[in-house]
Design a protein around this nucleic acid. Structure first.
Lengths: 153, 153
DNA sequence: CTATGTAGTCAAGCTGCTTGACTAAAACTG
DNA sequence: CAGTTTTAGTCAAGCAGCTTGACTACATAG
């Protein structure tokens, strides 16, 4: 017994490390967004904003991006409409569909999130330096299923 | 406009990259655990097992580890007891408390999870090499709030 | 022009969490 | 050591966010 190589033990807490880092980041950004006055928004909404931002998105597109059912996405849109962050417009190309777009408030919130993210990431990235940052990005990309949960911006 | 430095754009998708990697890992491990016959277990239970494993844990300790209320932790223990993964014993040092420990089935499941994790991580770690792996671990640790969501093993 | 597929919503239900209230035991405190 | 406060755990009720199922309106393929 006790013949398990050290590499394994160290390898096995990579998932915890990753989760821990991701959570710390999300919590930090969320705190920054709240501090900027957007208190009725949760991290999950950020992923929605990322997809809606720019040209807008349909409910189905949003559902795919968030990996939930279209009903769940529709409910989230209801919520965001009620809170004034997004709007439903008739879709220019498809009378069945609706184009969800950010309101001014939604755009302001997105900016706040970007500021908060920069605030959290900048000092860490500075300590790392551009070289290690690039390496980390490459290595993480290799770990992630390509294209999943990526932002549209 | 358009004067935002490139560094910022690249920095801003680090959270997405991290989340994406973490999710891919968790999904992969979960699939491996299911493939080994433990189909009534979800990733969240893995974090519970990690804390219970070894000397065992109380409900309150588990709650702290999972960052939920003690009621939620107690409900999860109910569930795991019903499924045969853990047991409640009287605590040797405190008559109020109960010591939660893994059953044989719980230990087997933990082993399955370690196997699954190794299976997912090994090829990726091999491609990286020990040097970059060490660097990545260091950099992620710097990002994570120290000590959070760490395993006890 | 009919048949099949797709976008979105309504409705009901479930799961996993929360808050609040409580019991029993431990740990302070004067 | 009696009295107070804190801590471990549970019961109960409620809520948020998701699911499945059923449906309407429009699009598209044959």
């Amino acid at each position: 017994m006790c013949q398990t190589p050290v590499v394994n033990r160290e390898l096995l807490d990579v998932p915890f490390l990753l989760l821990s880092a991701a959570r710390a980041l999300v919590d930090g950004i969320d705190a920054g967004v709240r501090a900027r006055g957007f208190t009725d928004i949760r991290p999950a909404h950020g992923y929605a904003f990322a997809r809606i931002s720019g040209t807008g998105a349909t409910v189905v597109q949003l559902a795919e991006h968030l990996d939930v059912t279209k009903q769940a996405a529709s409910q989230m849109v209801d919520d965001l409409v009620r809170k004034g962050y997004v709007e439903r417009h008739p879709h220019p190309d498809d009378a069945r569909a609706k184009l969800i777009t950010l309101t001014a408030r939604g755009i302001a919130c997105t900016r706040a999130a970007e500021e908060a993210a920069t605030e959290v990431l900048e000092p860490w990235a500075a300590r790392l330096g551009p070289q290690r940052l690039a390496a980390l990005r490459t290595d993480l990309t290799g770990l992630a299923t390509p294209g999943r949960l990526r932002p549209t911006w």
